[in-house]
Amino acid sequence: MIAPSAYLLLSAILFGIGAVGVVTRKNVLIILMSVELMLNGVNVAFVAAGSYLGDAAGGVFAFMVMTVAAAEAAVGLALLIALYRLKETVDITELKVLKW
């Protein structure tokens, strides 16, 4: 039997790795993927909590997170394509001008 804290720890590790990706990488695509990783880490915590506490809310929350992740990916990638057309780069440090 696995302690609930193991799941929470795993969730934290995934979230942490994703956060490192977001702050240290320059490639926008990889940053977006790291965001997905962070959301996934959160999902692990939700599902584990839901199943240990016997509450369906955990699953529902994870479900909502997935929806948000899908929406975020779609909009993020659309933004990326629009930006790439404009700037021809995926380097986030070069995408610092907020108006054009």
Binding site: M1, A3, P4, S5, L8, L9, S11, A12, I13, F15, G16, I17, A19, V20, V47, A49, G50, S51, Y52, L53, G54, D55, A56, G58, G59
Partner: peptide
């Protein structure tokens, strides 16, 4: 990130959840 994970590890150990078989919630 390491600091964050360590903190969460400490918190996770304190965080109480009943230790039992998985409930059929998913």
């Amino acid at each position: 990130a390491g600091v964050f994970i360590l903190e969460s590890a400490v918190l996770a150990r304190r965080f109480w959840m009943p230790k039992g078989p998985a409930a059929e919630v998913g």
